[in-house]
Amino acid sequence: MRAHTARLVDDRIRIEPRDTPIPGPGAQQLLVRVRAAGLNRGELLALRKQPPGAPAVLGIEAAGEVVRAGADAGPFQAGDRVMGRCRAAFADYALLDAHEAMAVPERLSWIQAAALPIATMVVYDMLIAQGRLAAGEWLLVTGISSGVGVAALQLAKALGARVIGTSGSARKLADLERLGLDVGLHTRAADFHDAVMAATGGRGAGLAVNIVGGSVFAECVRCLAFEGRLATVGYMDGVLEGRLDLAALHARRLTVFGVSSKGCGPEERRRIVRGVAEQVLPLVADGRLVPAIDRVFPFGELEAAIARMESDEQLGKIVVGGE
């Protein structure tokens, strides 16, 4: 089957096509014919931390048809349309652990389905499971034009929340108004406290999502309402530390939490997948939540897809496949 290896060469990510045997599913796995796969910034950042020239396998989410199911793979069977987190998704076939697989809503194309798994699991964990975002609350998202930021905006609006977003691109903020962005703040700096307070009538945000990183961490804390929650989901700025105002944390009963699947065991991953299936996918199935797609590239243009993501020009999800 066709697969791809990635290497960092002269500070550029190069893709090498290769032929490899079709894998066989384990007892709790699904062999899936990949129709489309999502590209994620986190995997590119991880590759750039490896020694130059070291081979890596990219692709952590896919959508496709089940070809063969393991003996203990649950309700899925050959022919089912599924999507989920996996490994080596930029290939003709991939293995999905059955507890990571979700049925594709009927109305979705393969491209739309491939855009959902990682983003929906992150925003479910961030906004619902840990964030407890309620209808009528204000959500603040720094770096809202990122893939996760756009997904957070869409889910928050479907839940009835109001959303403030920061971005270094005025054009992207204007485009996000069509998805329901209530207040767009054109900035990359930690200078948005006053604007957030003005928008929220002095109350602050019930939930803040920090995608930017340590450079705006303290400002996010300043923007929280009483009993506000702050989610850390990324550090696009590369700054891994931030000042925490303990007096504010104490007096305003704040909660600070991280959003990551790295330390999650199988049961925690199952819980998140169940939550997405029960609380997010129904919004997709009835059309209230439509994946925002930036651009689609064929598998043969994976390098171009990576260049698009690293240019920071995208708005929404970059997907590979659909051929």
Rank of each mutant, 00 (worst) to 15 (best):
D19C: 09
V209L: 15
I306R: 00
H4F: 14
A205S: 02
A161C: 02
I111T: 15
F192L: 03
F192K: 00
F76E: 00
L96M: 01
G84M: 11
A91D: 14
L230H: 09
G213A: 08
E65I: 02
K262E: 12
D97G: 09
L116S: 08
A225E: 15
R48Y: 13
L224K: 00
R243L: 14
V34T: 01
E301M: 14
F90P: 06
C264R: 10
L246R: 04
G180L: 06
R162E: 03
A231F: 14
P298T: 10
L58N: 07
D19K: 10
V82Y: 07
A73S: 06
T142Y: 11
Q50L: 14
G26H: 02
R7H: 12
G184E: 05
R252I: 00
E278H: 06
L230V: 01
R18L: 15
L133H: 02
A134I: 09
S109T: 12
G149S: 13
E241G: 12
A195K: 08
I15H: 02
E16M: 12
R14C: 13
V319Y: 12
L153P: 02
D245L: 08
G300W: 09
R203C: 10
E278C: 06
A292V: 15
A89M: 12
V66I: 05
L39P: 09
D245S: 02
A205Y: 06
A62R: 08
R12D: 03
P75D: 00
E177V: 10
A247M: 02
S146D: 10
N40V: 13
V273S: 03
D19R: 12
A114R: 05
E278M: 12
A292L: 13
L246I: 03
A36M: 05
A27H: 09
G53M: 13
L254H: 08
L47G: 01
E303N: 02
R68T: 15
A135G: 14
A88C: 11
I15Y: 04
A63C: 01
A115Q: 11
T255V: 13
Q130C: 07
A307D: 15
Q279H: 14
Y235W: 11
V221E: 10
H193C: 05
R308W: 15
W110R: 03
R132L: 15
A69W: 08
F192C: 06
F297M: 08
G213P: 03
G213D: 09
A115N: 10
L185F: 11
G38P: 09
E137N: 04
T187N: 00
I211F: 13
L246H: 01
D286K: 02
D237Y: 00
Q50G: 08
A152H: 13
V163Y: 05
A134D: 03
C220P: 12
D294E: 04
G321S: 05
A54V: 01
A71M: 01
E65F: 09
L96F: 06
G79W: 04
T232L: 02
L155V: 05
N40A: 15
D11G: 08
I60M: 08
V290S: 11
V280K: 07
V212D: 11
R18C: 15
